[in-house]
Write a protein that binds this DNA or RNA. Structure first.
Lengths: 122, 122
DNA sequence: ATATTTACTTTGTCAGACATAGTACGACAG
DNA sequence: CTGTCGTACTATGTCTGACAAAGTAAATAT
């Protein structure tokens, strides 16, 4: 099974989180579920990765947090919700551009059909 | 200017090096030049990143080193050359597969035309 | 003669991912 | 009404790859 290493995804967890928050405020557990769903179960973010990302992203001013009840009547346990900021949106946009560039560069070193490769002449 | 962050490239430096070594043995300075050329000057690997990558990749058994003169007559300063191994080729192949998967996943969270995005409804 | 390029090595720092563990509330089953 | 499961986190510490800073030294260009 091919797995996504934490090294290649590194630095893009923030981008994924921001992408989800662009659709509206959300909180830890829900975001992790969404990442799993959106990625077709191909990527599951670790809890500690997610929550430490929140701290970092908020420090950077890309998200804001607020505590609220799950339903308007005030039932259920309170959660910490996050909302993307203007700066966060700008950061997200720059990450999208960076991604296009990265893809271009990395693909110069990647073979799309690597199975056929051998080492004969080396 | 859009720049490639060390976080997104992390873990793919090894792959780039292996890709270059697939064409035949090479050494540090030349590899760094090639990475720059192949990437159209878009990515320049840092010296320390490169040389520490050699140590790691060799430890993993993906490359082998040998010291040789730059020309057959024995002139010039000796260099440490690297040669990819069978295990290295396999690793490279797996990284290519991983890349395809990663791309698929990341792109679910990336907007190709991010300029038009706003935050109205949030 | 010396500045630049080539070809490294050494040391130490930092950030992001993640393992491990623990807390605590609410829902629901038996 | 008790125990288990799912939800919703926090705290602490470790590891790895990238990289900054600095130094060495031979070869080559000026």
């Amino acid at each position: 099974m091919v797995q996504i290493s934490s090294d290649i995804i590194r630095g893009y967890n923030d981008t994924m989180i921001l992408n989800i928050l662009m659709k509206g405020p959300s909180y830890g557990y829900q975001i992790s579920k969404e990442i799993k769903t959106i990625s077709d179960e191909k990527y599951v973010i670790k809890e500690t990765t997610l929550y430490s990302a929140f701290t970092r992203i908020e420090k950077n001013g890309y998200i804001e947090s607020f505590v609220a009840n799950p339903d308007p009547e005030g039932n259920g346990k309170k959660r910490t919700y996050y909302r993307i900021t203007e700066a966060g949106l700008e950061y997200y946009k720059s990450k999208c551009e960076e991604w296009e560039l990265t893809k271009e560069v990395v693909e110069k070193f990647i073979e799309e059909n690597p199975d056929s490769l051998t080492l004969d002449d080396n």
